[in-house]
Design a protein around this nucleic acid. Structure first.
Lengths: 183, 183
DNA sequence: CCTGCCATGTAAAAAGTTACATGATTCG
DNA sequence: CGAATCATGTAACTTTTTACATGGCAGG
């Protein structure tokens, strides 16, 4: 049920519209959560109905009006309550690993292509995360407390993406070696 | 939609009952997919209706009868088709990271406790994966091709869990340092 | 005697995906 | 002149989670 909480922490850091939230879920917030605009709008409606958010409509000319959402005190309490309850660790779900588990069902080349494709995707994402890290590291006058916590979430993304990259390379090398042995 | 495919690859490796599948999703298969027994029974029903699986009822006395599911040729084709279509990379969703992003909202100790808790959980899981790896490595007479592919999925679990562990330690150290500086 | 294992499911609610829908503006 | 961006949503469907439900047998 953490989509609601993910939205709240994002808005707490920086109040914005649903549209902007969707963009942030594609960028920085995306390091730890992902959501489509459809989900976001629905959830924003619920959170507002529950009193966890207030919306202020900004009239704009030349482009559609927008609603800026802000977390209420009630919303902050709701978040803090949730944060005080321990949670378990994630459950992995990855299509590529499902495919690999039955890798002997298809040609070696098909599997290698898919691995190479994923390697590139993870490499690209790692690059994005490194760019985000530079933004943190370049602030010479020191980070705020809030930024330091956000930095830790980014560090997680960096370590995990690095592992994926390493694993893709290892898997490709392993299968190439198998291939050469004529299996 | 990969739950169906995860079930198929598991049954392909080793036909079994829904109950046994649920256990395997908690153990070895759990390295790359997770599912509750409720999901599994429903999906088994669908897969059987679609002709991807056949079920054989085993009468047992003293305990409930069980149905052993096996992948049909049609099911294999269904799998292979899916495997030939490239898929994207996962989207991370993790409660702990949501909490950390708003870490300044609660006491430092609360966050540190949660991090330490997760550190232990990841350490335990890493231990399980290492034990599974030993089973692969101890087979002196060489692994089958299918086992080699399965080994790669386990390697992924090992690398990812190792990263989580490293990250938890890094985050704990980072926050302790902050604490000492009297923030 | 109580807990846990074996073995299967149903039902309801929440979360997530995919498709549909609108309409002006800006940039190439 | 077409594509992308801004900005919001609805509807239908699929997937996942949580709770409920049954019942015998084995072990401490």
């Amino acid at each position: 049920m953490a989509l609601a909480h993910a939205i709240l922490v994002a808005l707490l850091d920086n109040p914005c519209s649903g549209y902007d939230l969707a963009k942030r879920f594609d960028e920085s917030v995306g390091v730890f959560w992902d959501a489509s605009h459809q989900q976001i709008y629905r959830e924003l409606g619920k959170l507002e109905a529950d009193g966890h958010l207030t919306a202020e409509t900004i009239e704009q000319d030349g482009r559609p009006n927008k609603k800026i959402y802000e977390v209420t005190e009630g919303g902050q309490g709701f978040l803090q309550e949730w944060m005080a309850k321990p949670t378990g660790i994630r459950t992995v779900k990855d299509d590529l690993l499902v495919k690999l588990f039955a890798g002997h069902m298809v040609s070696r080349d098909l599997i290698l292509e898919e691995l190479e494709n994923h390697r590139q995707l993870h490499e690209a994402r790692l690059g994005e995360y490194r760019a985000l890290e530079q933004q943190f590291l370049s602030k010479t006058d020191g980070l705020t407390l809030a930024s330091r916590f956000q930095y830790l979430t980014l560090r997680n993304g960096l370590l995990i993406e690095q592992s994926w990259l390493t694993w893709c390379e290892e898997a490709i090398a392993y299968l190439m070696r198998l291939g050469r042995q004529g299996e």
